[in-house]
Nucleic acid binder design. Structure first.
Length: 855
RNA sequence: GCGGGUGUGGCGGAAUGGUAGACGCGACGGAUUCAAAAUCCGUUUCUGGAGACAGAGUGUCGGUUCGAGUCCGACCACCCGUACCA
């Protein structure tokens, strides 16, 4: 018996598919289309198990849908701009473009042998001028449509490297390279008006019925609609021009519990006070060192600075509240100023306790006496009745909110306002390796878009990375250009675009990747939307929200049909591939990460370096990442066992939406199973026709198993439960192996086996198909048809519970009614034993499911 | 901090409120073999018992139900995101 040789077989079928053009997608209005897309990879240099898992899932869907008769679009590209290329440029003296295209070449070489059914003729890379030139054209359209504008905003500034840092590059408030304390610096930057769409993006979540509920929730919370009151305090002792302090609150009902007002360190009032108050200036400087990330700001110790300014309570002029600058108030949300009601907000309470401010409860739980209600260390945030609040006393929270709003409006001091947490999308990056923002700054004309015929504005090939900062800033021949409007000497914008812009429309570009416009109407109309989008849960908010916005912006500027403003019909978020982390400490006390290959794990679980034997700290299993070096190379698996084994393995065991921890042990098992299937096929083909009594019965039993497999595998694939589909294929394999059905029946079973396995293990499936005399390429065959009549069972086994515990079971005809089952149960030996002569207190019969006898 | 998720044998996991542990890995036993590899068959949640069987058991504590891994409440641990990593 010859063994199945993946190394020879896989390239053979890949060549056959290539020659047949099996995966080329052509627009054909006569056929129903299906667009399946996996989030495109960043070309880091090598593919990893996460890619294999992601693209295998998409490929299973693509191949299955093709077998179902759809005209399938399944493209691939590269999310090719980004920081790592610049880091490589600085560290290895290689140009970002060279580094990136080399990586793309390597990764393509590693992907191809996996046999994904991709239309490679549509390949694109976002760093290619062919792609980003069209992006620049859309940027100009968006400027003209009022969707792009400039305003000031803050960045992390490294004062030693004189460069802007990404949040990731800030470690404990210091720059990762220089170690310098980070500052916040204000720059004029480009923004997209995503906040104009807050309400619509929120509303439309309701239409995304084939998205995971968790993603819809996360997006809704991110957009963060709140209904509140915006009002103005009169100030005492504030500088010129700050007679009022405008605050936003969602709890106007607690206004009588207010004990302080708080403003962000970046609030204009705080900035105005800094000049004459060195202490405050120092406090603010320290706050700014926390950086710009919300996480860092929120987890930092809550601190405040009493400005000495007071505000007057809007309903009681005798009450004055101190105004604090507080490090936890974000300038980006609301007005950058709040009032604090410690009794009913935990953060305010912590703050009040720290600075000795009064804590007055103004909402009392219904079941508690007002006199006995005191606030300890926990703020009361539930519902109740208003107390200690003058004219609000006795009201519900809702009534009090309305009353406060009414009186504020009457006093001309405030108004109801709907607020969103979602901020406009800042797209400027002070970096080289991104899509240049196609505008020119002219001393007389101001900000002028580049002429479309001059696009693309290409990145220079000769940038230097020998000093930190953006090389475009110090590249005179690239930077100095005539103004597109008046021709006078002017300067290009040297900021490039956020890489999220690149990934916000690549799905649309795939429908016409070589066009000299961003999209082509007919192609977009035919192929959009993406029917099935697959990617990591880590993109649940930003990438998907930006794409939803961008599709709307493209519709407004005529680049997508209105029907495509929600570009992803169905979304599946796969779990990540995780692995343990291995680290040692360097002499300088810094953490040094090691790859799994560098580490040897002993039987007792302790780990040491293969080289030198130094003890290694084993960290928790987290997302595979280059920076932590906890990566496993799929190329090794593919070379040893073949693509089908790797594909089969990543589809088995773990449910696709869950994280999977990579272990090497299963690959061997997957390979063994594929060998077994091959042997079964070869056996069936070579079997002698044995005249066996009962052959018909055996054949029927095998046909039943076959059709059960068709039903179960189909359900598994349709329901994105690939691990269950795989489990059912294991069972089916077992059934065929044990069957002594005649040759023809076994050949038929194995032909169905090949067709059911084809989405996961396409090469093996083709080989079996050919070996068993199947017509043409299996890839062009339809999905096996199910004969429902073969699924029906004559008898079913019902478990019997006594008091909810299983004590036995009975076999009953499948069509037995309740009364018949009851009679059989009451005659059952086990039941009689437990009843001990008595009558059951209750008898629950769920036909086809279970029987429960309560004694 | 905040938002979202996950938690079941030695391991990955299965289970429309209805037999907890399908399927796979590992382990153990057997067949085949001069022997091994490969392959095939069987056992495998834990505790007690020769066994029939009994008791316990789905992160922790409590609740709803004839019946809870599944529903509700409180907590614990870990993971993802937190707007300049992609």
């Amino acid at each position: 018996m010859s063994r199945y040789n993946a190394r020879e077989t896989e390239p053979k079928w890949q060549a056959a598919w290539e020659a047949a053009g099996s995966f080329r997608a052509e627009r054909d209005p006569a056929r129903e289309k299906y667009y399946v897309l996996e989030m495109f990879p960043y070309p880091s240099g090598r593919i990893h198990m996460g890619h294999v898992r992601n693209y295998t899932m998409g490929d299973v869907v693509a191949r299955y849908k093709r077998a179902r008769g759809f005209n399938v679009l399944h493209p691939m590209g590269w999310d090719a701009f980004g920081l790592p290329a610049e880091n490589a440029a600085m560290e290895k003296k290689v140009s970002p473009a060279v580094w990136t295209y080399q990586n793309i070449g390597t990764m393509k070489e590693q992907l191809k042998p996996l046999g994904f059914s991709l239309d490679w003729t549509r390949e694109l890379a976002t760093c290619d001028p062919e792609y980003y030139g069209q992006q620049q054209a859309m940027f100009i359209d968006m400027m003209e449509a009022g969707l792009a504008y400039r305003k000031n905003s803050v960045v992390n500034w490294d004062p030693v490297d004189m460069t802007v840092l990404a949040n990731e590059q800030v470690e404990n408030g210091r720059g990762w390279r220089s170690g310098a304390l980070v500052e916040r610096r204000e720059l004029t930057q480009w923004f997209f008006r995503i906040s104009d769409f807050s309400e619509e993006l929120l509303e439309a979540i309701g239409t995304l019925t084939d998205w995971p509920e968790k993603v819809r929730l996360m997006q809704a919370n991110w957009i963060g609609r709140s209904e509140g009151l915006q009002f103005r305090f009169a100030t005492l002792g504030a500088p010129e021009g700050f007679g009022e302090l405008e605050v936003y609150t969602t709890r106007p009902d607690t206004i009588f519990g207010a004990s302080f007002a708080g403003i962000s360190p970046d609030h204009p009032l705080s900035r105005a006070l800094e000049a004459g108050n060195p202490e405050l200036a120092a406090f603010n400087a320290e706050c700014r060192r926390i950086g710009t990330s919300e996480e860092a700001l929120e987890t930092a110790e809550k601190r405040g600075f009493d400005t000495g300014i007071r505000v007057v309570h809007p309903f009681d002029a005798s009450k004055e509240l101190p105004v604090y600058v507080a490090n936890f108030i974000l300038m980006d949300y609301g007005t950058g100023a709040i009032f604090g009601c410690p009794a009913h907000d935990q953060r305010d309470l912590d703050f009040a306790r720290k600075y000795g401010l009064t804590v007055t409860p103004v909402v009392c739980p219904e079941n508690q006496l007002v006199d006995e209600f005191v606030i300890g260390d926990t703020a009361f945030t539930d519902t109740g009745r208003i107390i200690n609040s003058g004219f609000l006393d006795g009201m519900t929270i809702e009534a009090a909110k309305a009353e406060v709003a009414r009186r504020m409006a009457a006093q001309g001091q405030g108004e109801l306002k709907v607020n969103f947490r979602l901020r406009d999308w800042g797209v400027s990056r002070q970096r080289f390796w991104g899509c240049p923002i196609p505008v020119v700054h002219c001393p007389s004309c101001g900000v002028v878009p580049e002429k479309k015929e001059n696009l693309p504005v290409e990145l220079p090939a000769d940038a230097s990375f020998d000093q930190p900062g953006n090389p475009l800033d110090r590249h005179p021949t690239w930077r100095d250009v005539p103004c597109p409007a008046c021709g006078a000497p002017a300067k290009r914008e040297t900021d490039t675009m956020d890489t999220f812009v690149d990934s916000s429309w690549y799905f649309a570009r795939f429908t016409a990747p070589r066009a000299d416009t961003p999209t082509v109407a007919e192609d977009a109309a035919y192929w959009m939307n993406v029917d099935q989008y697959i990617g990591g849960i880590e993109h649940a908010i930003l990438h998907l929200l930006y794409s939803r916005f961008f599709a709307r912006a493209m519709a407004k500027t005529g680049h997508l049909p209105q029907s495509a403003i929600e570009p992803f019909d169905s979304l599946f978020t796969q779990g990540m591939v995780t692995h343990e982390t291995y680290s040692t400490l360097s002499e300088a006390g810094r953490t040094v990460w090691h790859t799994p290959e560098e580490v040897e794990i002993a039987a007792d679980g302790t780990a040491r370096l293969r080289e030198g034997g130094a003890p290694v700290t084993v960290g928790p299993s987290i997302k595979m990442s280059k920076s932590k070096k906890n990566v496993v190379d799929p190329v090794d698996i593919t070379e040893q066992y073949g693509a089908d084994t790797a594909r089969w393995f990543v589809m088995s065991d773990s449910p696709p939406e869950r994280d999977v921890e990579w272990t090497a042990s299963g690959a061997e098992a997957a390979w063994r199973h594929l060998q077994r299937v091959w042997r079964l096929a070869a056996d069936a083909a070579g079997a002698d026709e044995l005249p066996s009594a009962g052959g018909d019965e055996e054949a029927l039993a095998l046909a039943r198993a076959t059709h059960r497999a068709i039903a179960e595998v189909t359900a598994g694939i349709e329901g994105f439960a690939f691990n269950k589909a795989v489990a059912k294929l294991y069972e089916f394999t077992s059934a065929v192996a044990k069957s002594s059905a005649p040759r023809a029946a076994r050949i038929e079973a194995m032909q169905v086996m090949a067709r059911l396995m084809a989405p996961m293990t396409p090469h093996l499936a083709e080989e079996i198909w050919a070996h068993l005399g199947g017509e043409g390429l299996l890839v062009a065959q339809p999905w096996p048809e199910l004969d429902e009549s073969l699924l029906k069972e004559d008898t079913v086994t019902l478990p019997i519970q006594i008091n909810g515990k299983k004590r036995g079971d009975i076999s009953v005809p499948a069509d037995a009614d309740r009364a018949a089952i009851e009679a059989m149960v009451m005659a059952d030996e086990t039941v009689l034993r437990y009843l001990d002569g008595g009558a059951p207190r209750k008898l629950i019969v769920v036909p086809g499911r279970i029987v429960n006898v309560v004694v």
